[in-house]
């Protein structure tokens, strides 16, 4: 493992390109952030406006789900290279999380 860091000095063009790419990506992140703020506003506004609970609950849960996907895939780069196993285990975790919540909200004996 001593030999696993090769220093690669990029040419000016390569460097500029990579930098530009990162800057573009950052713009995407800003847009993502705007969407997240917007979704949060919708959720809070719906509750404040006092719509029926049957309408609000599914919608705000959906909005929360979208926000989480945005966080995972954009801010945390889960779609990036080398994230295959990561995504697999996160989905396994979400699956167990889902059945845990499902069990305790439906079949707990009350």
């Amino acid at each position: 493992m001593a030999h696993d860091t090769h220093i690669h000095v990029r040419s000016q063009a390569e460097f500029e390109y990579a930098k530009k790419k990162r800057a573009d990506e950052m713009k995407g992140h800003l847009a993502t952030f705007a969407i997240m703020i917007f979704l949060t506003l919708i959720a809070f506004t719906m509750v404040a406006a006092g719509f029926s609970a049957y309408l609000i609950v599914p919608i705000i849960l959906l909005l929360a789900g979208i926000q989480v996907i945005l966080q995972l895939y954009y801010f945390m780069h889960m779609s990036g290279k080398g994230h295959g196993m990561v995504a697999f285990f996160m989905f396994c975790g979400m699956f167990v999380a889902f059945i845990t919540v499902l069990a305790l909200v439906t079949i707990v004996w009350w």
Partner: peptide, 12 residues
Amino acid sequence: GNTIIWEHLFWI
């Protein structure tokens, strides 16, 4: 409270 919660968490 609800003791069944323990049973679920324990067996999960």
